[in-house]
């Protein structure tokens, strides 16, 4: 029978796919951005499904909040009012064929390489989110993160410097 979480997954997947398509085909940039935020929240829900509550929090707050707002900013600052989605049929068709090539091949690849031991990967005790385990997970993820945090910090620094350099208006 179809369990609740299976049902939730399918609904969520459809939500992600359609909002993802919406990112592509929305008429205006602002609509596209909104659609992107929907996609991000859908992905966050996927994280929730596989017991990764910590990433769910991060995804919603950093991605859905911070980055999306940044992108909204970019759209506002740069787009003209007449910037609508334009559709070049032949170009789109060629691109679609190329993507389909990848999609088909990857599908074949995945279907042959996914481990044969198939099982329900959703393993929270009785589907319940325990508060204690939630915090344990956060702590343990931080243990792993500690290894990689300096690199992230460096990356941010570089990005910050680069963006500042680019954004500063040249003296004319």
């Amino acid at each position: 029978m179809v369990e609740f979480f299976d049902f939730f997954f399918v609904i969520n997947a459809l939500f992600i796919v359609f909002s993802g398509l919406g990112v592509l085909f929305a008429k205006r940039v602002m609509q596209s951005a909104l659609s992107l935020i929907f996609t991000l929240v859908g992905v966050a829900n996927v994280f929730l499904l596989v017991n990764s509550e910590y990433l769910w929090v991060i995804q919603v707050s950093v991605y859905g909040g911070g980055i999306a707002v940044l992108l909204l900013f970019a759209g506002r600052l740069t787009s003209n009012e007449e910037d609508h989605f334009s559709f070049d049929r032949s170009d789109f068709l060629i691109s679609f064929l190329f993507v389909l090539l990848i999609l088909a091949n990857l599908f074949v690849f995945i279907s042959k390489s996914i481990p044969s031991q198939r099982g329900n990967i959703y393993t929270t005790d009785n589907g319940q989110l325990l508060l204690r385990q939630f915090f344990t997970n956060i702590w343990q993820a931080n243990q792993g993160l500690g290894v990689i945090l300096p690199f992230i910090a460096l990356m941010f620094l570089a990005a910050l410097l680069a963006s500042v350099k680019l954004a500063i208006k040249e003296d004319e």
Binding site: S52, I58, L77, Q143, V147, L166
Partner: peptide, 30 residues
Amino acid sequence: VIDQYMGWVFAMVVIALAAAEAAVGLAIFI
């Protein structure tokens, strides 16, 4: 522990990457 949470850590890295990319992208667009 690190093996078990490596996927999370990579996801975190990707998010951080996206953030950095968005920042740089904004500057490039402007």
